[in-house]
């Protein structure tokens, strides 16, 4: 029997063929843009005309740019307050994890914001905060307080946007925790009960350790969400008032698209890329350690 090339190498080649389409798309639409963006960040370029080499000029300018400082500071605030999402949803999931028919409806209400598009969330909250006819204003007035224009107050605007962003984020983390709770090992819980663990002690020592994978994912997605926050800022304030609610991702779009500064926008993208990279590397390292520990 003659063995042809295909028969000999079938096992080795098949995966290559299966991977090829995905790899090709990944290269064209992900890998190539990353490198081209790194390259553009070394130029001054308006997106249309000639490109001028400035070396690290864009990065040096960023160092002194007040807007970038504001953006980084706001990203930090986002990072800290976005971590409330896993915390809130942990509490909620414990409450919602009861076998009551009535709770089904309540549960779906809590999940609801997760399926709503961020654009809609942004618009709803913009209306809510509107100082002329918004609901918030209505509540404050009926309680005898002065109305607050949340989205045009430079001191609280970022918190106003984060609150809007937390709404769907809590729902997301809630789903993670609910699945985590559904997968609890009954035997361990029973064993704990026999040993006299109750209430807080039970939660802290028996339930929470079992929810570790869920917590880990919830924290990871929240941190990523905080770093790449863009949509709500764009919809609710466009970085305003006077740029005080801007974040790195928004600043990047504004510089590149609206201000015709592709090079500077690319430099901002690069910084964001490396920040996310460091974090994801740490994340993968943790996953790797975890798997190694179990094996």
């Amino acid at each position: 029997m003659q063995v042809n090339f295909w028969d000999r190498n079938q096992l080795r080649l098949t995966p290559v063929f299966f991977l090829a389409p995905a790899m090709l798309l990944f290269t064209v639409y992900v890998v190539y843009p990353i490198f081209s963006s790194l390259w553009i960040s070394l130029y001054e370029w308006n997106g249309v005309g000639e490109m001028f080499w400035v070396g690290l000029g864009n990065y040096i300018e960023m160092w002194e740019d007040d807007r970038v400082h504001t953006a980084i500071w706001n990203n930090l605030i986002w990072l800290i307050f976005f971590l409330l999402a896993p915390l809130i949803s942990l509490g909620l999931s414990i409450f919602l994890n009861q076998n009551l028919t009535e709770l089904r409806f309540i549960k779906s209400i809590f999940f609801f914001p997760f399926v709503v598009s961020p654009v809609v969330v942004g618009l709803v909250f913009s209306q809510f905060y509107n100082p002329e006819y918004g609901l918030l204003d209505f509540f404050l007035k009926s309680l005898g307080f002065q109305p607050i224009a949340v989205l045009s107050n430079e001191e609280i605007v970022t918190f106003g946007i984060i609150l809007a962003a937390l709404w769907p984020q809590v729902a997301y983390c809630l789903i993670l925790y609910m699945t985590g709770l559904a997968g609890l090992n009954r035997e361990i819980v029973e064993a704990g009960r026999i040993d006299g663990a109750k209430g807080w002690k039970m939660f802290w020592n028996v339930i929470l350790p079992q929810l570790r994978p869920a917590t880990f994912i919830a924290v990871v997605v929240s941190v990523l969400g905080a770093l790449r926050s863009f949509d709500l800022v764009a919809i609710m304030t466009r970085g305003g008032p006077w740029g005080s609610s801007t974040v790195l991702a928004y600043e990047m779009v504004e510089q590149a698209i609206f201000n015709y500064r592709m090079g500077y926008g690319a430099a901002l993208a690069t910084i964001l890329f490396f920040l996310l990279d460091i974090y994801i590397a740490w994340f993968l390292f943790r996953v790797w350690l975890n798997e190694k520990g179990r094996l």
Binding site: Y129, N130, P131, E132, A149, S152, G240, P241, W242
Partner: peptide, 15 residues
């Protein structure tokens, strides 16, 4: 008007 930084030009017509 107060809070004009919260309003679009269309919303500014309301007052």
């Amino acid at each position: 008007i107060e809070n004009h930084a919260s309003l679009s030009w269309q919303e500014g017509q309301a007052p």
